[in-house]
């Protein structure tokens, strides 16, 4: 993997030459002056944001501030909505997303939705394998894929004897973890999560937060949440969006303790939103 070379500094080496100010963390995604519209309405305006690799980045902000739209731009799902439009650039590993086939983008950038949405006509096993089945790819060992994905989603022990049951027969929290397993099964580089816990109870929420922490060293996670405690618990970086604009982005600890913007502070302390 050539990317590993860029990822960090070799311990003990001294940066020299042009590479001297090499970033400590490589950016997986760069969003540059992104504007997204539904018809004539701008949902996000001129957002510029970089998302470091193998970290959890939380996007927070009040309802309707464009969090989900921003997320849906990152796997080009936004443009699948009728009437949607985008301008600006998004770079994935330095390459413009628009230069790639959206199909390829979405294989590299997985997504988990707000409400658990396992395919109702498929079993638990088939749901996990859906990313292969629906793209015409045959995994070498489907059983291994299923077990690995379900283990990563912390669901294996609960469903290993129920793989043939319909995916919708599971509880809400299990369904959401099934959806995470489905997204992880195809080994994406990035995982987008759109308020993944908003339909779940606190126990199920805690399990999902835990598994997000566990996959983060391997996968870049971008999580939209309206729950600030959740952002504080799971993310390394936090971006605050308000009325479609990026107000502030930084290390989560900084954003929550010493935000640079007054608006951020007011939102975080619950004065609006």
């Amino acid at each position: 993997m050539t990317s590993a070379i860029h990822e960090g500094l070799v311990p003990g080496s001294i940066p020299v030459g042009r590479d001297a100010p090499a970033p400590a963390r490589r950016n997986k995604i760069e969003v540059v002056e992104l504007t997204a519209r539904y018809g004539n309405r701008e949902a996000i305006t001129g957002v510029t944001l970089s998302i470091p690799a193998r970290t959890v980045t939380a996007i927070i902000g009040p309802s309707g501030c464009g969090k989900s739209t921003l997320l849906r731009c990152l796997n080009r799902l936004h443009e699948a909505t009728p009437g949607a439009g985008v301008s600006g650039r998004i770079l994935l590993d330095g390459r413009d997303l628009r230069a790639e086939d959206p199909i390829v983008v979405r294989r590299r950038v997985g997504m988990v939705f707000q409400r658990p949405n396992p395919f109702p006509t498929m079993s638990v096993r088939d749901n996990v394998l859906a990313g292969f089945r629906l793209t015409g790819v045959r995994p070498r060992s489907p059983e291994e894929v299923v077990e690995r994905a379900l283990r990563r989603a912390a669901l294996w022990n609960e469903v290993k004897d129920a793989l043939d049951r319909p995916g919708t027969s599971l509880s809400g929290g299990q369904q959401q973890r099934l959806c995470i397993a489905r997204a992880l099964a195809v080994e994406p580089e990035v995982l987008l999560m759109d308020e993944p816990c908003s339909a779940l109870d606190p126990v199920a929420t805690a399990r999902i937060e835990e598994l997000v922490r566990e996959v983060a060293p391997e996968v870049t996670v971008v999580m939209v949440t309206h729950n600030m405690q959740q952002a504080a618990r799971v993310s390394e970086r936090t971006a605050f969006l308000y009325l479609g604009r990026l107000v502030e982005v930084g290390d989560t600890a900084t954003i929550f303790t010493r935000p640079a913007e007054r608006l951020t502070e007011e939102y975080i302390t619950g004065r609006f939103g």
Partner: peptide
């Protein structure tokens, strides 16, 4: 539900496959 076909699209499936394998069965 649109979420269902979006789930298929988000997995990198082509439109026609999502229609045939997700939407029609549902």
């Amino acid at each position: 539900p649109r979420e269902l076909s979006e789930a298929g699209l988000a997995l990198g499936a082509r439109n026609w496959r999502v229609a045939l394998r997700v939407v029609v069965p549902a």
